[in-house]
Nucleic acid binder design. Structure first.
Length: 803
DNA sequence: CGTACGCCGGTTTTT
DNA sequence: CCGGCGTACG
């Protein structure tokens, strides 16, 4: 199918008569190009160099998105390109949305939507739907999520009689993804790599691809891989796209993998009007296939490229920039940028060591409250403007525990994504089946959810019936029901399920109800809602809440099909904005964000830089970790606080660690060393203690803690001694009691000892005591906790979640 | 077929 | 220390 004339994406958004270079356009958009106002010379150069290859090296906070959107505006404004002739690619939906909004704003709504502004995946889906048959798919192919993918791989492993221990589905998925990222089809995997996995991996890869074809499905990696394959084997199609996409823009180029790189290079090879924006210093996704090499090699790939460096930073203070630059300077083979700023000096980066992880969390909690109140003698910093950035998500727990206890509102960014949650996937599987009864994976998922007495044996019977008749599982189930191939209860239940599926399917086609009503009906009639209503685990109310949320989300779509189509690609986590909260997230999740105050805890060797990263990838791994440090520091606008703990409980065992080597790389002149609480006057290196000393004496006095800290080997480490040698110490942390704490007694007065209560994180429990505004609660699952009263509700109120 | 217990393993994450 | 998963029973 090479004829695109019907695709609205290629329809001229602007009548041809109005299309003109430079001249006639002014009439359309007004004479002046307001989008150029306020750009610095480098940005302006990047915006105005429209033709030929351009590499925009944009350091952190240098107005990259601004330049990129201005460039699009410029292409449109000068009439160089129409909106549908511009291909603009991002990695995330969020970035795509942002760019769309900003272009719209710059152009004053005059421009119709840009059809080819989107993520790599969204754009590839659009293309692949048109050419699916060239890779053996139908244009209505489904896109599998990770969960489907894993279940499929597991089936293949089991079917192949392969030991699941030696070939865990997760590992196989990782290997296959890796190959797809490099644009290797099953037949293109280099012999050496194939041999590295006993050739079994390739065998399974081929089987997996064959199975996907059978299911008329593909996974995320396929979207790119298939398009690259099509472009490489069908020159006419490639030519067409090359003509259509007259200008190409790529965001976060340092994160592209080989498949994405090939796709871009193929599309750009004719006219070479490609503008890539990126920062080699912020390449932090090497472990999932990103190739920094792509950006380092740009000038070789596109000889004569215009290279523009954006080095003026509009985000951070000079001290923060200097600290970040100091750390990243240790990396080799950088393209090299020197960030500068006009901003006032501000505060130095603050560095503090703690006895253990809990102490660190406590200190940061108090510090956040102090900043919020402006107690430190400066403008108050709202909670929305503060963030804690950690290396690994398990570090979040210490903060969550602490913040729950003191009642500090927080939000975890990038947790389990909405559409990845169990209940959402189950519900979606029902919707998928209502739309198409061919969806075998969806059927397998829900056939026994809720429990219908249809276990492995029953499923096997259904599968056999389906296979021998060459039909879908739903049809197979119908055959089983009609032929009474199962026993009493299971048979009856299966009959009910099949009837339900038929009914829902019919209703989808008739469109007799609104799709929201239909969705709600499906979830009710299938017994899925009831399943969670009867569930007494602490998660159940939340899951029901999520289901309600899901039905609400349907509002934005025409019908169920439309919804399913979009959800496959939009795994976004729309974070609800309810009140001021501190953000807690990983360093990876923080890329692209900025906060006035940033806390960077856990700077200990082994944790950050991560031991595993260094073990697996050696110097390359260490350098990526260092870039992560760079990304972390450069998120801060005003106040950046780095901390580490001498001891940490990891897998239930106490372990001590040395301060991160990155701390040694911080330039002294831009760092202020704070004194940990209990160490007024500073600690002095004493003889090291045994490394497994238990610091589990939490409620000890400060002087006791001091004594302990005194002896800890961390204070005798090279990193720590360096801090001492700098001799800059200043007490910061005030005891919490010294600050005027407002205690909300209204919440606490609602409870008495013995009440059953519900807490969103800890679940159900019973109040054992009341101390000030805190409740001491024994939770059914989570054990004894002290929690601020406003974070719990009476247990009977919690079960009252209507659906 | 569903539940209870014991064992293993345990970064980073988007689409 | 915690959760997911697989095996062993009811």
């Amino acid at each position: 199918m090479n004829d695109f004339s019907e695709d609205d994406a290629f329809e001229a958004a602007v009548p041809l008569s109005q299309r003109a270079r430079a001249g006639g356009v002014a009439a359309r958009f007004g004479g002046n190009a307001a989008y150029l106002d306020g750009l610095n010379p480098a940005q302006r150069a990047a915006v105005e160099a429209l033709d030929g290859p351009v590499l925009m090296l944009a350091g952190a906070g240098t107005g990259k998105t601004r330049a990129l959107t201005a460039r699009i505006a410029h292409l449109l404004h000068t009439g160089t390109a129409r909106p549908n002739e511009i291909l603009a690619v991002t990695f995330t939906n969020k970035a795509a949305r942002e760019m769309k909004n900003r272009v719209g704003r710059l152009m004053g709504e005059t421009v119709e939507g840009m059809p080819w502004l989107g993520t790599f995946h969204a754009i590839c889906v659009k293309q692949l739907r048109r050419h699916a048959e060239l890779v053996g798919l139908k244009s209505n192919f489904t896109i599998l999520d990770t969960d489907d993918q894993l279940r499929l791989l597991k089936q293949l492993i089991v079917a192949g009689g392969i030991d699941e221990k030696r070939w865990p589905p997760r590992m196989l998925a990782g290997i296959i993804d890796g190959w797809k990222n490099k644009a290797y089809g099953p037949d293109k995997v280099p012999l050496a790599e194939a041999a590295a996995f006993d050739h079994k991996g390739v065998e399974l890869y081929a089987a997996y691809q064959a199975r996907l074809k059978d299911l008329n499905a593909c996974d995320f990696g396929d979207l790119l891989l298939h398009m690259v394959t099509i472009f490489q084997t069908h020159e006419d199609i490639l030519r067409q796209y090359q003509r259509w996409f007259r200008y190409i823009l790529v965001d976060e180029y340092q994160d592209t993998n080989v498949a994405q790189y090939l796709w871009l290079r193929l599309l750009a090879s004719a006219h070479k009007n490609i503008c890539c924006v990126g920062d080699d210093d912020q390449s932090i996704y090497g472990w999932r296939g990103a190739e920094v090499g792509n950006i380092l090699r740009f000038e070789t790939d596109f000889p004569g490229a215009t290279v523009v460096k954006l080095e003026q930073n509009y985000r951070s203070t000079p001290h923060i920039l200097a600290a970040a630059s100091g750390v990243i300077a240790s990396n080799k083979g950088r393209l090299g940028k020197t960030l500068f700023t006009d901003a006032e000096d501000g505060e130095k980066v603050r560095l503090i060591g703690h006895w253990d992880g809990e102490e660190e969390a406590r200190w940061i909690g108090e510090e956040i409250e102090a900043l919020q109140r402006g107690t430190r003698g400066q403008d108050p910093v709202g909670l929305d403007n503060q963030a804690i950035l950690v290396r690994a998500s398990h570090q979040m727990r210490a903060f969550e525990d602490r913040f729950l206890t003191i009642g500090l509102p927080y939000r975890v960014i990038g947790g389990p994504r909405f559409y990845e949650r169990l209940e959402i996937r189950d519900a979606m599987a029902y919707f998928r089946l209502a739309v198409s009864q061919e969806d075998d994976l969806a059927f397998e998922r829900i056939v026994n959810t809720p429990k219908r007495g249809l276990g492995d044996k029953a499923v096997q019977t259904i599968q056999r019936a389906a296979r021998t008749n060459g039909v879908s599982l739903v049809e197979g189930a119908r055959i089983v029901v009609q032929g009474k191939l199962l026993g009493g209860k299971g048979l009856r239940e299966l009959g009910v399920l099949v009837d339900g599926l038929d009914r829902w399917h019919a209703q989808v086609r008739q469109e007799s109800d609104t799709h929201q009503e239909l969705a709600e009906m499906i979830l009710d009639e299938s017994g899925y809602t009831g399943m969670w209503q009867n569930d007494k685990t602490p998660e159940a109310p939340g899951r029901l809440e999520n289901l309600k949320e899901l039905v609400k989300a349907l509002d934005n779509f025409e019908n169920l099909q439309g919804f399913l189509e979009h959800v496959a690609l939009i795994m976004d986590n729309e974070t609800e904005q309810d009140g001021e909260k501190v953000s807690i997230m990983t360093l990876h999740a923080a890329k692209g964000l900025e906060f006035p105050a940033v806390f960077l805890p856990g700077w200990e060797d082994g944790l950050f830089p991560s031991q595993r990263s260094m073990d697996e990838s050696g110097l390359k791994g260490l350098e990526e970790e260092r870039r992560l440090a760079y990304v972390g520091i450069t998120r801060a606008e005003e106040i950046c606080t780095i901390s580490f703990a001498a001891n940490r409980r990891v897998y239930g065992q106490w372990q001590s660690a040395l301060p991160s080597r990155f701390i040694d790389e911080l330039p002294e002149d831009h760092v202020e060393v704070l004194t940990p609480p209990g160490l007024y006057g500073g600690g002095y290196g004493a003889a090291g203690m045994s490394t497994n000393a238990s610091p589990k004496l939490r409620e000890e006095s400060m002087s006791d803690l001091h004594q302990k800290a005194h002896d800890a080997n961390v204070y005798n480490s090279p990193g720590w001694r360096r801090l001492q040698a700098r001799g800059q110490t200043r007490g910061v942390s005030q005891p919490a009691e010294a600050r005027n704490m407002t205690i909300d007694m209204t919440a606490v007065s609602a409870f008495t000892t013995g009440d059953r209560v519900f807490h969103t994180k800890f679940g159900y429990g019973e109040i054992k005591g009341i101390e000030g505004d805190k409740l001491s609660i024994t939770f059914d699952k989570a054990g004894d906790k002290h929690v601020v009263a406003k974070f719990v509700v009476a247990a009977d109120a919690a079960s009252d979640v209507p659906f």
